[in-house]
Design a protein around this nucleic acid. Structure first.
Length: 204
DNA sequence: TAGTGGATTTGCT
DNA sequence: GCAAATCCACTAA
């Protein structure tokens, strides 16, 4: 297992998404280290992708998406949760891959303590906000370099996943992207359940 | 076990 | 103002 190289990640998000399946993300805190193997991701591009945060241009929140590949983009959603992305694409151009689900492989006790609602281990990081919660990724990690061995968040290469084991489908919870199958996953109990885009619960 | 309401930031309309 | 790349506690059967 080794850290990724910057040039490996500076590719189109669609290619980066496949690359990240099976890769391992690891966070280190004073209390210990938690590592997880990515089993589900979604690609987000730039101005040609209406579902992307970067579609309408650069803002204070999504500025990291325009930066160099290999950094972490963390954003806040629904007033409660954080989601983590790996920045891809070329410098000066937006692009990122949302980390949706992973299997915790190291630091299980720590992850269980952080995710008290998870009744089974495969639920520890089964979903984008659960993943950040299990790994304790927060706003302080926004813009962190995933390729620096001294960084609190790092990204390692994992198993080679053969193309035939990669499943694709529409992205989850994205109203504007029902016809772009940019969600990628591999068989695992930790893959999150698919939910249709648009307002899931109309009314209220 | 299935269904629903709530927490509460960000940025566009 | 409103909708969003969500999760979980609570309720009813």
């Amino acid at each position: 297992m080794r850290l990724f190289k910057r040039e490996e990640l500076a590719v189109d998000p669609l290619d980066l998404a496949r690359l990240l399946l099976g890769a391992v993300i690891e966070t280190t805190e004073p209390e210990g280290t938690v590592a997880a193997r990515l089993v589900e991701v979604e690609a987000y591009r730039g101005q040609d992708d209406p579902a992307s945060h970067s579609y309408r241009g650069q803002t204070a929140r999504n500025a990291v998406m325009w930066g160099p590949a290999g950094h972490l983009y963390v954003y806040f959603v629904y007033g409660m949760h954080f989601c983590a992305n790996v920045v891809g694409g070329e410098d000066g151009g937006p692009g990122a891959v949302l980390l949706r689900a992973a299997e915790v492989t190291e630091g299980l006790d720590l992850a269980r303590a952080r995710r008290k609602a998870a009744r089974r281990d495969h639920e520890l990081a089964q979903g984008p906000a659960r993943l950040t919660s299990a790994l304790r990724i927060g706003p302080e990690h926004n813009g962190a370099d995933l390729l620096d061995p001294a960084s609190p968040v790092r990204l390692f290469t994992g198993d080679d996943i053969s193309a035939q084991d990669i499943r694709t489908g529409p992205r989850v919870g994205v109203a504007a992207a029902m016809d772009t199958p940019w969600r990628f996953w591999i068989d695992s109990p930790a893959v999150s359940a698919y939910r249709r885009g648009g307002r899931v619960r109309p009314g209220k």
